[in-house]
């Protein structure tokens, strides 16, 4: 565990909590893509099945459980509790276009052809593109609430910190996991456009809106 990974994990946790807090406080999930949140819940449940087979550390186990529980509660809020506020007509990204190719790729390119390993690989590939329905929704409506953009920034910061963590681990531990690194870089690239808008607009006190 290095400092980049720790701050990355905490940034990830912060993103998840910002989103939950926003939905709970405003009693509304407007502007949030239920599809992206469903994909993240799927990512965590398929990746952390090793909770039953491997023990790494109390920290690791605790964070895994928190991520799974929070992502499931978020999905419950969007599709059940605050369903009336969910903008389903703007959340039109076709999820099967992500899940099917990602599933196929997980079968073809993995470290080991075993069920748990394939599910882990699937979750890594899926996480790298799971934010697309959310970004698609923002591009469709042309704007995002400021709190939603803080959520996305914390999520993007987590990804960027994980890349620094991999550079660190490569140099100081001789460790690298190519699948995680390639998927992680793809994921981070998806946030670049958003980072630009966040820095030029949101940090200047403006709402995140796209030019018409």
């Amino acid at each position: 565990m290095n400092v980049f990974r720790l701050i990355g994990d905490l940034s990830h946790l912060l993103a998840i909590l910002i989103l939950l807090w926003k939905i709970w406080k405003t009693r509304s999930c407007s502007g949030i893509s239920g599809k992206s949140q469903f994909l993240f819940a799927l990512v965590f449940t398929t990746r952390y099945l090793d909770l039953f087979t491997n023990f790494i550390s109390p920290y690791n186990t605790f964070m895994k459980i928190v991520y799974i529980v929070c992502s499931c509660v978020t999905v419950y809020f969007i599709y059940v509790k605050f369903k009336a506020t969910y903008d389903s007509n703007h959340d039109t990204f076709r999820v099967e276009f992500l899940v099917v190719p990602v599933g196929g790729l997980a079968f073809l390119v993995n470290h080991d052809f075993t069920p748990l390993e394939i599910l882990w690989t699937f979750s890594i590939y899926l996480e790298s593109v799971a934010i697309l329905p959310q970004l698609f929704m923002i591009s469709k409506t042309g704007e995002a609430e400021t709190i939603t953009s803080h959520y996305l920034f914390a999520l993007g910061a987590y990804r960027a910190l994980y890349i620094v963590n991999w550079v660190y681990r490569y140099y100081f531990e001789g460790f690298f996991d190519l699948i995680a690194i390639v998927a992680g870089c793809v994921q981070t690239i998806l946030y670049c456009d958003f980072f630009y808008l966040y820095i030029t607009k949101v940090l200047q006190g403006k709402k995140l809106s796209l030019p018409a």
Binding site: R5, W120, N165, E173, F175, A180
Partner: peptide, 10 residues
Amino acid sequence: KFEEALHDEL
């Protein structure tokens, strides 16, 4: 090293 450290990240 690679095998044993695999998947220790979140």
